[in-house]
């Protein structure tokens, strides 16, 4: 049985003020195995976020269903941790209390909360910043905190929606290595949305390519690069071959998306 089953999920957003409804997602099915790291790659506006938000339970599908370990998803919950593209740390809480947030909602004793939070903060390299407020952190540090916050809840799955999209290139690559390292250590099931081809290949065990809007799954490519992967894998011929293929797939869709906008 797969960890996550997305079954004929589709989404149409109702139009507002006499505008036509937006068809964001064609009926989409996807099976995610336990311990898989899936990246979802697609041009802007193709419905990647919509699909991820449906899995998170933040959006209800117009049709179809999502099953997590065989149980239908009916709303957001702590079993699916999420990191958003925008910075969503609670600005009034310290870094440590942000990471404690979910544990606190669950009613864990304070001492245990702190122990868990400090462990995950160390894992994302934020020891020494526990008492900072989010406004005092760089974008990369904020997203690392958000990652620690999601991981601290020990979710069954991790959902990431372009979490590194707003970061500069170098920081972004370091964050990819950090996330991949964490995944290689405990193999939590991950669904990662991006429109960056290198990012998609580097971390994934499977890359799912989506077509231009309305989104549907265009192809599903297993990435057979060995683990543990270092950044050096990006210069290997195997990586280049994946990149060439995906560039072609994405290019076609991007051209479609751009001409559609005209």
């Amino acid at each position: 049985m797969s960890k996550l089953s997305i079954r004929n999920v589709e989404k149409t957003f109702p139009g507002r003020n006499n505008t036509a409804p937006t068809r964001a997602l064609e009926p989409t099915s996807l099976e995610v195995a336990d311990n898989d790291f899936i990246t979802i790659l697609g041009p802007s506006g193709c419905g990647k976020s919509t699909l991820l938000r449906i899995v998170a339970g933040l959006e209800t599908p117009s049709a179809g269903e999502v099953l997590l370990e065989g149980k239908a998803v009916s709303g957001p919950g702590p079993d699916r941790g999420m990191v958003f593209q925008s910075y969503t740390l609670f600005p009034w809480l310290t870094v440590r209390d942000n990471v404690c947030f979910g544990l606190r909602e669950r009613g864990l004793p304070r001492a245990e909360q702190l122990a868990v939070a400090d462990r995950f903060l160390a894992q994302v390299g934020l020891k020494g910043f526990e008492n900072h407020h989010p406004a005092q952190l760089s974008g990369g540090m904020q997203q690392r905190t958000a990652l620690a916050r999601a991981l601290a809840n020990d979710p069954k799955m991790l959902l990431l929606d372009e979490p590194f999209g707003a970061l500069d290139h170098q920081t972004r690559e370091l964050m990819q290595e950090l996330l991949l390292g964490i995944w290689e250590a405990d193999r939590k099931t991950v669904m990662f949305v991006t429109h960056d081809i290198d990012e998609a290949i580097f971390m994934a065990s499977r890359v799912v390519v989506m077509s231009a809007r309305p989104g549907r799954i265009k192809c599903d490519i297993p990435i057979e690069l060995p683990h543990p992967r270092s950044y050096k894998v990006k210069t290997t011929p195997e990586f280049a071959a994946y990149k060439e293929r995906l560039t072609e797939e994405i290019r076609v869709e991007t051209i479609k998306a751009v001409t559609m906008e005209r």
Partner: peptide, 22 residues
């Protein structure tokens, strides 16, 4: 910001938690 509220839900907050602690 609704994204703060959504983040709280994905961290397991319920209705009262969202109102009181977000």
């Amino acid at each position: 910001r609704t994204d703060l509220v959504e983040a709280a839900y994905t961290l397991g907050a319920k209705r009262d938690g969202v109102v009181l602690r977000v």
